[in-house]
Design a protein around this nucleic acid. Structure first.
Lengths: 284, 284
DNA sequence: AATTATATTCCGCATTGCGGAACTAAGTTC
DNA sequence: GAACTTAGTTCCGCAATGCGGAATATAATT
C-alpha cells in the first residue's frame, strides 16, 4: 500500500470535514463532506471564489474541487459567474435557511416576548443557536430607539467571548462540551487561558444567578446578559441575549433588571413548550 | 453486468439530483448530490424529518440515507433531535445564507432605492433570484404603511405565475430558458397551456414596455409589476418587483406609474454597476 | 510568442460508497 | 407477553464511483 498520501492536507484554522471524521468512520460519506467543505469556504467578504481558492482553503486536489464545484453548481448551491469564472453561493441556500427558520416553533413563540423586552430596556434582544465553533443569530428584536448593532439573523459570533456563547456552554451536556472546548482550545492557541477563565466564570455566574453577564468582552462597546434554554424535547439548546451599547446599558442594570427579566422570559418560554413540568429547578 | 438496478427510483414531483445528472455524467459527484437532495426534502411545514421520510421522498435505500444523514448531522447541516430521533435543518445553513446575502453587492446597492419606491407607492418592493424551478426573495422593502405580505427573504414563489418570474424568463439566455421551460412543463402537467400563454404574454409586454404586469395570477389579491436585471458581469439575473394588495394597487397605476418607475430604478442600478455601456463600460 | 495562472478532461486504479440482508430497538395489537 | 409492525443502524462483499496525477485547454500577462 503506497497510497493514503491523501490526507496530507495543509492544516487550516477551521477544521475540515475530513479532519473531523477522524480515523476511518465507515459511516461518514467523505464525498458529501468535501462538497460541504467547499460551501463553507465562503466567509464574510468572499463574494466570489474560484476553484483555485477552494483548492487552497480545503487542501483538496484541483481535479476533485473541479468536480465538486461542478456538482454544487448543477444543484444550485453555487452559482457560476460567467465573466470571472468563479462561483458565488447560490440562492437555494437562502430558501433552505428560510425553511429552517419558519419551522422553528420556538422562534415564533419567542419573538413577541423578545420584542417586548427589547422595547422595555431600549436594547437589542437576540436568540441564537450553535453552529460548530460559532454562535449564530436566529432571531433579533430591536427596540425602535436602539442604536442598531451591525449584526443580523445569520451572523456569527465567537462562543467563548460572548454572553450568548458562555450561557450556551453552561448548560451543554458534559461530553459535548468537552469536545467543543477541545476544539476551541486548539483553534484559539495562546489566547486560550483567558478564554477558559471567562468560560469558567460564566459557568459560575449561571449557577448562582441563572444568567451570564458579559461586559465588552466581545466588542469593546457592547454589554450584554444571556440565558440558555435547553429544549425539553431534546432538540438542542438555544441562547437568548439582551444588551446594547456599553454607554447605555450598564452592569448594574444587566444584573439587577435585565438579567432577571430575561431569565423570566426564558422560563416562560420553557413552560410554553411543555418543559419545566412538575417541580421547577430554578425559581425566581 | 447484472447491475444498475440502482437508478430505479420512484418518480417524484421535484426532480432529484440523480435525475438531473442525466445519463452518465463523469463530472457529477453523486454522493454529494444525494446528500443535498436530503437537505432539499425539507419543505414549508416540515419541522422535523426522520430517515424514513427521506427514504420516501428521495427513493434512496435505507442504508444510504442513514449514512447521509449521519454525515450531514456531523457537519451541522442537520441537527439531530434526541427525543424524536428525527432531524431538523441545522443552524449552519442560516449562517451560510447570511454570508451569501451580505456579499451580494447589488443587494446593498438596491436596498435604499427599493425602500424609496416602496414608500412612494405605499407598496412592497422585492428583489429576487432563481433557485431551480422557483423564484426566491433576496431582499424586501416595505412601505411603513404597507399591509404586510406574508412573504419574506428566502421565501419562494412559482416562476410562471408571478410577475417576478415572468420578467426573469423574458431575459434568460435562450438555451437556459428552453431547459427551464421543459422542466416546468413536466412539473405543471395539464396546467401548462395556461402557464405557457401567461409567459408568452409577459415576454411580449416586456418587449414593448420594459416591464411585466401581473394581476392576481399568483395570489387572488395581489397585483404587481416586475423588471428583470441582467448582471453585466454575467453573474446572473435578478428580478425586481413592486406591488401590493389588489384593492390598493390597480392596473392603471402599475402600467402608468409604478412600472416605469421600477424600470427606471433598475436602469439606474445597471448604470451603477457598470452595465449599459454605450458610453463607456468601466475602466479600471 | 513565451509565460504564468487557472480550470477541465482523461483514464487506470483501488477506495469508497453502496445496498441487500441481518440485527436492534420501540411501539402496537391481541 | 408473544407476535407484529415500523424505524434505524450495522455488516460486509462487491464493483461502481470517485479519485487524482498528468495531459490538455483556455486566458490573461509580459
Amino acid at each position: 500500500m503506497n497510497t493514503n498520501q491523501r490526507a496530507r492536507h495543509l492544516r487550516l484554522p477551521e477544521a475540515t470535514a475530513e479532519d473531523e471524521a477522524g480515523a476511518a468512520d465507515r459511516q461518514f460519506v467523505a464525498a458529501l463532506g468535501r462538497g460541504l467543505d467547499i460551501l463553507r469556504c465562503f466567509d464574510e467578504g468572499d463574494a466570489e471564489l474560484g476553484n483555485q481558492d477552494f483548492v487552497q482553503r480545503t487542501g483538496l486536489p484541483k481535479a476533485t474541487v473541479s468536480r465538486l464545484t461542478y456538482t454544487l453548481a448543477r444543484l444550485g448551491f453555487l452559482t457560476y459567474v460567467e465573466r470571472s469564472g468563479r462561483y458565488t453561493i447560490g440562492a437555494g441556500v437562502v430558501a433552505l435557511a428560510r425553511t429552517m427558520l419558519n419551522n422553528l416553533d420556538i422562534r415564533q413563540l419567542a419573538r413577541p416576548q423578545m420584542l417586548e423586552l427589547a422595547e422595555r430596556f431600549g436594547a437589542v434582544c437576540c436568540m441564537a443557536a450553535r453552529d460548530r465553533n460559532h454562535i449564530v443569530f436566529i432571531e433579533m428584536a430591536r427596540s425602535s430607539s436602539a442604536i442598531t448593532l451591525s449584526t443580523d439573523v445569520g451572523s456569527r459570533v465567537p462562543i467563548e467571548s460572548t454572553a450568548l456563547g458562555r450561557a450556551y456552554l453552561a448548560v451543554m451536556p458534559a461530553d459535548e462540551r468537552t469536545a467543543l472546548l477541545a476544539d476551541l482550545k486548539q483553534a484559539r492557541g495562546k489566547d486560550w487561558p483567558a478564554a477558559k477563565a471567562a468560560i469558567a466564570q460564566g459557568q459560575e455566574q449561571f449557577r448562582r444567578q441563572g444568567f451570564v453577564v458579559s461586559l465588552q468582552s466581545w466588542q469593546r462597546d457592547v454589554n450584554a446578559v444571556a440565558v440558555p434554554l435547553v429544549m425539553p424535547n431534546g432538540s438542542g439548546i438555544y441562547s437568548f441575549m439582551c444588551g446594547g451599547p456599553s454607554f447605555l446599558i450598564k452592569q448594574a442594570a444587566l444584573e439587577n433588571e435585565i438579567g432577571p427579566a430575561l431569565r423570566q422570559m426564558v422560563y416562560r418560554l420553557e413552560v410554553g413548550i411543555g418543559g419545566r413540568r412538575g417541580v421547577h429547578r430554578l425559581r425566581d
